[in-house]
């Protein structure tokens, strides 16, 4: 599972860098930090979500989606929005 996740994340990051280079968008350091934190939290959520099912701890699995999964999505969305607005400003 981790190999697949690693490949998917690698492709996503490569795609993001390719996209940013193509559009000539420069992201601020704190956006990269938000992406890193959001991504780590998302990976932490996924690992604990699936592992909790294999531990037969169903409630814990769903709680991970709520307690760490939701904040990870919010952080990644915030990073996306900040990046989007910053690039629009620089276009103006």
């Amino acid at each position: 599972m981790w190999l697949t996740i690693g490949i998917v994340i690698g492709i996503l990051i490569m795609g993001l860098i390719w996209f940013l280079t193509k559009k000539q968008i420069k992201m601020a350091w704190y956006v990269w930090l938000l992406i890193a934190v959001g991504l780590l939290l998302l990976l932490f959520t996924l690992q604990n979500f699936f592992a909790s099912f294999s531990e037969h701890e169903t409630k814990a699995a769903w709680m991970f989606l709520l307690v760490t999964g939701l904040p990870s999505i919010i952080i990644l969305l915030a990073a996306w929005q900040i990046a989007l607005r910053t690039s629009k400003k620089s276009e103006i």
């Binding site: 932490f44 690992q47 604990n48 592992a51 909790s52 294999s54 531990e55 701890e57 814990a60 991970f64």
Partner: peptide
């Protein structure tokens, strides 16, 4: 008293 699958 826990399993050790979840890294938490």
């Amino acid at each position: 008293s826990k399993h050790s699958d979840a890294i938490v």
